[in-house]
């Protein structure tokens, strides 16, 4: 990813900013310009709280070129508390310890680099939920 896209995605990547419909209250991630439920264009930003459960997961051994240094890594579909689902990498966990239904929470991590001199982009990954 290059600079304009990295900057454009900051609200989503740093604070899980989705949208809530002002008409029917439906919550969406990624943000939608029109509500898929009621078709209202009146959408306001809504920050998801970043807690959820693993819906499915996979360990990637043959990654895209910009993720080669990180392989193998785990990607997952996560059911968020608000009722939406998100696609993200899991972190701070060994592939063998991941399971469907596991509680996870969002953290900020390095996502990728564009070449050796390029932009380093940061954003959400999910780790096993830690109870304090």
């Amino acid at each position: 990813m290059d600079i304009p896209r990295v900057w454009r995605l900051i609200p989503q990547r740093y604070r899980l900013e989705g949208t809530q419909c002002s008409n029917c209250d439906a919550i969406q991630f990624p943000p939608m310009m029109i509500c898929p439920e009621c078709k209202s264009r009146n959408q306001k930003p809504y920050n998801l709280n970043g807690k959820g459960k693993v819906y499915s997961y996979s360990t990637v051994y043959a990654p895209l070129t910009q993720f080669e240094d990180m392989a193998p890594y785990v990607v997952a579909l996560i059911d968020l508390k608000e009722g939406t689902r998100i696609t993200a990498q899991l972190t701070d966990v060994a592939p063998a310890d991941v399971n469907i239904g596991m509680d996870v929470e969002m953290v900020i991590r390095k996502i990728s680099e564009r070449g050796s001199n390029g932009v380093i982009s940061y954003g959400y990954k999910f780790r096993p939920l830690i109870d304090f």
């Binding site: 990813m1 896209r5 995605l9 989503q12 990624p30 499915s56 997961y57 996979s58 990637v60 043959a62 990654p63 895209l64 993720f67 990180m70 890594y73 990607v75 997952a76 579909l77 998100i86 696609t87 993200a88 990498q89 469907i100 996502i111 990728s112 982009s121 954003g123």
Partner: peptide, 19 residues
């Protein structure tokens, strides 16, 4: 923006379905 840029190859998207 929300699948490939997070590290998902097309194979891994199908792997999520298979799992």
């Amino acid at each position: 923006d929300y699948e490939a840029a997070m590290g998902l190859s097309f194979v891994s998207i199908n792997a999520l379905l298979m799992r």
